[in-house]
Design a protein around this nucleic acid. Structure first.
Lengths: 181, 181
DNA sequence: GTCTATATTTCGATAGAC
DNA sequence: GTCTATCGAAATATAGAC
């Protein structure tokens, strides 16, 4: 049940936004009542947090590799990492979409102890990397731009490119980003 | 007063999100009461709509040029248009930020008659352009990627690049995007 | 043009029966 | 594990005085 709740919540949060989605809607879609949700999650924010932590796990693996690299090798390793990032986005599009479209909601749950557990927030580490003065500013800007290109290109390909196969789009985005390095 | 309401609303919508910002907060910041806002705007959504229409005007000018071009010249004209787009984003960052971070809220407003007035929605026209089969898919993907690069690179430069001057960042984004064409 | 006061709705959350 | 019933808070919106 817990899993079904997360599935429906993810879908509705993406379709309507986190704030605009009530627990009543989620419960109705599942054919249960609002109170039933409180057996599985102690609050609405807890549902969002659970979804957020799954994204953590995805991003954490990639960032662990980045952290292991000395600063002067980050740039040369970047294209390879972007490839893996593209794979990850393709395989978990809804989770990434949730994060992109509900950034503010995530900010409000950032204080939760479960969120600041062993390692710090993925986004924070990424931000520090992009602020590192050991990497030339021009390279950092390109890194940021490549992330933006991947996000906008792959996040909702149906809306932009109709029924073009997603894999085709992903390959073209890959080529585009590689040209920057 | 109407203008001051829009200023405060824009600021709060960006800082906390549209849904999470109440009319009470806006009124308190202005030193007036909630009810006073209803004299100037007939609803909360009306405030958002007004802000949206201003973005319309900005994007409409650029798209008018695109519409005037035959399909086979869109790609060659693109780099120049992106330059102007970058200028527009830099000069109206808060408005663009609002649109990017509150897409869902805007969707709920899309049915308003004032929104579907003379010409159709800017975003819709942009989407159709990117769906046009007269332009090679590879070029369309690059166009989309360039927009993503501009958005993520310029939308919140302080958070990403610290106190690096915004103009410097804008120039680097410009160079990055030009390399794709 | 701004106020007070209030209507109305909806939400997140809890208590307790089954 | 799910239900009914309900609470309290906060939100949008309205009515009418000044």
């Amino acid at each position: 049940m817990r899993e079904r709740i997360l599935d429906v919540a993810l879908e509705l949060f993406n379709a309507q936004g986190y704030d605009a989605t009530s627990l009543r809607e989620i419960a109705e879609r599942l054919g249960v009542t609002k109170a039933a949700l409180y057996y599985h999650f102690k609050s609405k924010g807890d549902i969002l947090l659970e979804l957020h932590l799954r994204l953590h796990d995805l991003g954490g693996d990639l960032l662990a590799e980045l952290d292991a690299l000395p600063d002067d090798q980050v740039v040369v390793a970047w294209p390879g990492l972007v490839d893996r990032f593209i794979d990850s986005v393709m395989a978990n599009r809804e989770l990434f979409l949730l994060h992109q479209r509900n950034r503010r909601a995530f900010e409000q749950i950032a204080d939760d102890p479960r969120h600041h557990q062993a390692n710090e927030d993925v986004e924070e580490r990424f931000r520090r990397l992009l602020g590192s003065e050991a990497i030339p500013l021009a390279a950092r800007v390109r890194m940021v731009c490549s992330v933006g290109a991947v996000f906008i290109g792959l996040m909702d390909p149906d809306a932009l490119f109709g029924d073009e196969p997603k894999e085709r789009i992903a390959e073209l985005v890959r080529e585009t980003v590689h040209e920057l390095f």
